[in-house]
Simulated assay, not measured.
Amino acid sequence: MFLPTTVAELRTTSRLLDRARDILATRIVYVGHPGYCSNGGHALSVPAAIWMAHTGALRPPTTFEQDACDHHPGDRPEFDQHTEVAQAIRFLSTCVAHDTGYLINEENDYLEHLCNWPASTPTNRITYTSSRLTNEQVMDTITDAAEHAAALADQLERTTARTAPAAA
């Protein structure tokens, strides 16, 4: 997985995050184990919502209800085979990590981080207490990240236009 770096990649990330937020608005944010969802997809993890936003699927595959968050990179074909999904997951995870001080150590941590983030967000860095985020808080954060990706795309587009050589 890698972060989006082009205007097109950033715009795709923004659109996927917007769609994932819309999907989560009609469901429950899933933070349990095992897997990425429960109740046939009525409760979805953030990565599962991003996957559904990309594929257009109305329900997640049944494999998402199995043990999933502890897999290693390459063991998650549903996520790994879609570059756009991987970029959106990593972008959102990076935004959340920046806001919460979460330290991502390995490639696998991005996916695991977003699976667990809504249930284990620190509320007090001195006492290390945490609380579960509401669905609304999760969706607000996704909205902020989508807007950030769009703003970065705009900024990159303006910078590229200013530095492009003039046509002969």
Rank of each mutant, 00 (worst) to 15 (best):
34 P>R: 14
20 A>L: 01
51 W>A: 12
29 V>W: 02
25 A>K: 12
22 D>L: 11
54 H>F: 08
46 V>D: 05
35 G>I: 10
41 G>D: 09
49 A>Y: 00
41 G>A: 11
56 G>A: 07
54 H>A: 14
54 H>W: 07
51 W>G: 06
52 M>A: 08
17 L>S: 00
33 H>K: 13
29 V>T: 07
53 A>H: 02
44 L>M: 11
16 L>G: 00
13 T>Q: 07
28 I>V: 12
13 T>D: 08
56 G>Q: 09
25 A>T: 03
44 L>G: 01
20 A>V: 03
26 T>K: 14
29 V>I: 10
36 Y>D: 12
49 A>K: 02
23 I>L: 06
47 P>G: 14
30 Y>V: 03
33 H>V: 10
43 A>P: 04
14 S>Y: 02
50 I>G: 01
49 A>V: 02
32 G>W: 10
44 L>R: 01
34 P>N: 14
53 A>V: 01
20 A>N: 04
48 A>R: 04
34 P>E: 10
24 L>V: 00
39 N>F: 13
22 D>W: 08
29 V>K: 04
27 R>A: 05
34 P>W: 10
26 T>A: 14
14 S>R: 04
36 Y>V: 04
53 A>E: 05
14 S>H: 05
36 Y>M: 14
56 G>I: 05
50 I>H: 03
47 P>S: 14
55 T>A: 07
54 H>C: 11
14 S>F: 03
41 G>I: 03
25 A>S: 15
13 T>V: 13
47 P>F: 10
28 I>G: 08
37 C>V: 06
18 D>A: 06
32 G>Q: 13
26 T>Y: 11
15 R>G: 05
23 I>K: 02
35 G>L: 13
21 R>L: 04
25 A>I: 06
30 Y>W: 14
30 Y>A: 03
23 I>P: 00
45 S>Y: 00
39 N>V: 06
52 M>H: 06
41 G>N: 10
34 P>V: 10
56 G>W: 06
40 G>E: 12
40 G>R: 09
45 S>E: 07
28 I>P: 00
41 G>R: 01
18 D>F: 04
45 S>Q: 08
13 T>N: 05
25 A>C: 09
34 P>A: 13
30 Y>R: 09
22 D>G: 13
28 I>A: 12
47 P>D: 14
42 H>M: 13
13 T>E: 03
48 A>D: 08
18 D>I: 02
46 V>H: 03
45 S>I: 07
51 W>N: 08
44 L>P: 03
42 H>P: 01
34 P>Y: 10
18 D>M: 00
36 Y>N: 12
31 V>F: 08
38 S>D: 15
27 R>E: 04
15 R>P: 00
25 A>N: 11
42 H>D: 15
56 G>D: 09
45 S>N: 09
35 G>C: 12
23 I>A: 02
46 V>L: 11
22 D>A: 15
34 P>L: 11
39 N>I: 07
46 V>Q: 04
41 G>K: 03
29 V>R: 01
50 I>R: 02
49 A>P: 04
37 C>Y: 07
30 Y>M: 10
38 S>V: 09
56 G>H: 07
40 G>M: 09
20 A>K: 01
38 S>H: 13
17 L>V: 01
21 R>T: 05
21 R>V: 03
37 C>S: 15
29 V>M: 04
44 L>T: 01
29 V>D: 01
21 R>K: 15
48 A>P: 00
48 A>Q: 09
52 M>F: 08
